[in-house]
Design a protein around this nucleic acid. Sequence first.
DNA 1: TCCTAAATAAGAATTATTACTATTTAGGTT
DNA 2: AACCTAAATAGTAATAATTCTTATTTAGGA
Lengths: 151, 151
Amino acid sequence: MKEYRSTKEDSLEEFVKKCKECGLKITPQRISIYKEVLNSENHPSAEIIYRRIKRIHPGISFDTVNRTLLTLSEMGLLEIVEGSGDVRRFDPNNKNHHHFRCKKCGKIVDFYNESYDKLEVPDYLKKKFIINKVRVLLEGICDNCINKTQD
Amino acid sequence: MKEYRSTKEDSLEEFVKKCKECGLKITPQRISIYKEVLNSENHPSAEIIYRRIKRIHPGISFDTVNRTLLTLSEMGLLEIVEGSGDVRRFDPNNKNHHHFRCKKCGKIVDFYNESYDKLEVPDYLKKKFIINKVRVLLEGICDNCINKTQD
DNA sequence: TCCTAAATAAGAATTATTACTATTTAGGTT
DNA sequence: AACCTAAATAGTAATAATTCTTATTTAGGA
Ligand SMILES: [Mn+2]
Ligand SMILES: [Mn+2]
Ligand SMILES: [Zn+2]
Ligand SMILES: [Zn+2]
């Protein structure tokens, strides 16, 4: 039986397809930014992506990175992650998942949980609002920060 | 049977008690800010609170308001609400509740749901992290914004 | 009443985000 | 392959949000 996994090539194809659908041009900058954010684990900020991209495109501007990330999120290829009044951070994980956030260091960790995925939304809310996403958000102190405090 | 409800007087007493516990001085500014934020419905920003407080303390500085709100949240009297890279907003609702957030206008609406309150956290997460809060976050389009788009 | 550390006001500095504009370029057309 | 044009980009500038600095005031204990 053949397994279908999403590889980077698949993602890039999806990206190109989506760009064409939306009438957006496929530029080297966009491709790099898309690849970079897709490879990143920890809900990076625009600034972080910018610094990484500069190694490949030394002349790229921060504005282009930030604008592209916003564009990607409008296209549905990224999410803007729920933060706490700190810098805006992006989420390249398009699988259904949930978050733990550390109050100390701000780290946001993905986790998967089938029973959380099945949460039902109360009818009165479904009637009043259009609900696109249901996510559980855990808050507390991460393992790193627990160890630090013990020092 | 006597009912216990939390009144504003109760809250103020709690505030004074908590301040003394933490060795914080009770200043007119702090009292006003605390009262104001406790009365607000819609997860206000520091700027919003600042503008309201100025009617009572015309000479108050924005920094004092912002700093005090951060202090209150460190004391556990407020929460910083999960946003999306926009301005920091505060949550004076200390009852167990959940949030709907509108992607269009950024409004955050409280709602209550007993089955959400009872959500279990997976053991492997409990072991790894200290979990203080479990919250469901719904995302979508609010009633106001649905109507606007129809125009 | 006096004393002192904490809190405040005012404004500067820093950081984050968005806007502007001249130049370049992707991608369609001839 | 050369040309055209709207979209995208680079390089700032402008704006908005947040934090820091410092002189002054004040809450609360002695
Ligand atoms: Mn995530
Ligand atoms: Mn709330
Ligand atoms: Zn942490
Ligand atoms: Zn809305």
